[in-house]
């Protein structure tokens, strides 16, 4: 597997921007028996050096995934923009569970509004839109990981292309 170094993030600026808004985010891990776990993330932030991504997860909706990550399971995250099908998958060898702060809560709200806007564009209406993006009031945590590989998965000829690190 490709090893990244701290000065060569696999995320380029454009993709770092892409994953924070107007995308549906799904997170997977697996347990020791290789049974996968899967949950939705409600936004994320990218560190200034683009080496760390912190996902925001609802705790009650993500029990098995959090358990698998705590046990040292690897992580995969897919970001997909409903209106364009543009899709990116990030992988990480492990992830840590971290607390989130008020700024992150604000990011979750902004993210929710941006996703709602994107799915409204393709014809979805209430009550579906609000129900999909609302996690306000639920206990939430951050999941931080260092992407070690990124794959473009937009359906089409380039699907599966691996992004090369950009120093």
């Amino acid at each position: 597997m490709h090893k990244k170094t701290s000065n060569s993030p696999v995320l380029d600026e454009q993709h770092a921007e892409f994953i924070t808004q107007r995308v549906s985010i799904l997170v997977a891990s697996c347990n020791a028996d290789r049974m996968p776990s899967l949950t939705r993330s409600f936004g994320c932030r990218v560190s200034p050096d683009r080496c760390t991504v912190t996902l925001f997860l609802s705790v009650p909706r993500s029990e098995s995934l959090l358990r698998d990550l705590r046990a040292g399971g690897a992580i995969a995250v897919v970001f997909s923009r409903p209106s364009t099908h543009e899709t990116l998958q990030l992988k990480g060898a492990s992830a840590s569970i971290v607390p989130i702060d008020v700024d992150d809560r604000a990011r979750m709200r902004t993210y929710g509004e941006s996703l709602a806007d994107d799915i409204r564009q393709i014809g979805w209406q209430e009550p579906f839109v609000s129900a999909l993006v609302t996690v306000l009031g639920e206990e939430a945590v951050g999941v931080s990981f260092t992407p070690n590989a990124a794959f473009v998965q937009t359906p089409g000829p380039a699907a599966g292309r691996r992004l090369e690190p950009n120093p």
Partner: peptide, 16 residues
């Protein structure tokens, strides 16, 4: 719908 699978080495993967 979204599908999660895992490789032999435990690397998860997600697909639409």
């Amino acid at each position: 719908s979204v599908l999660a699978t895992a490789a032999q080495d435990g690397t998860p993967n997600i697909a639409y």
